[in-house]
């Protein structure tokens, strides 16, 4: 299959083709950037609290146990839809209280059950984190996850 091709032709196809696909890839991500900012996420609602919530999320590296929109570790539950799972669409106050209470009682210490550490989050940090989850839950993810189990 390769006999008809000279070394230099192969090299030129590699450089030319790679450049072409690189330009296509970057162009599509530029468009995706625009799409994310204008359509699939709530840019206007990305307030101080949501930003702070993302910082809390990162400070404690939650992603190394949980997944968020399916990415992360697979040791603990998906949190991209934790807002829906706690009934946030129908009763936001109860969902907020429920998520905060759940984080506060960790670690459970139950033998044989995976333990989440106590990160000592303040009430303000917990609220910011919940705001971040709520904001994330409204990202247009093309219908993923398939159900509330995440």
């Amino acid at each position: 299959m390769i006999e008809g091709l000279t070394r230099n032709a192969a090299r030129n196809v590699f450089y030319g083709g790679s450049l072409f696909f690189f330009v296509v890839f970057v162009s599509l991500t530029v468009h995706s950037h625009y799409y994310i900012v204008t359509q699939s996420t709530d840019s206007a609602g990305l307030n101080e609290s949501v930003r702070h919530g993302k910082e809390v999320w990162e400070k404690h590296s939650c992603i190394n146990c949980h997944s968020l929109l399916g990415e992360g570790a697979y040791f603990a539950p998906e949190l991209g839809n934790v807002w829906q799972r706690y009934g946030g669409l129908n009763n936001p106050d109860a969902a907020r209280a429920g998520i905060k209470a759940y984080i506060r009682i960790q670690p459970t210490g139950v033998p044989g059950r995976r333990q989440m550490p106590d990160f000592g989050l303040s009430d303000e940090e917990l609220d910011a984190l919940v705001d971040f989850f709520e904001w994330t839950s409204r990202i247009d993810t093309q219908g993923w996850p398939p159900n509330d189990a995440g």
């Binding site: 690189f22 890839f25 599509l28 929109l69 399916g70 993810t141």
Partner: peptide, 15 residues
Amino acid sequence: LLGTGHHYYWIGTPA
């Protein structure tokens, strides 16, 4: 390069 698209299915990127 365009195979990166398989990570862009469900994270808020276009269909």
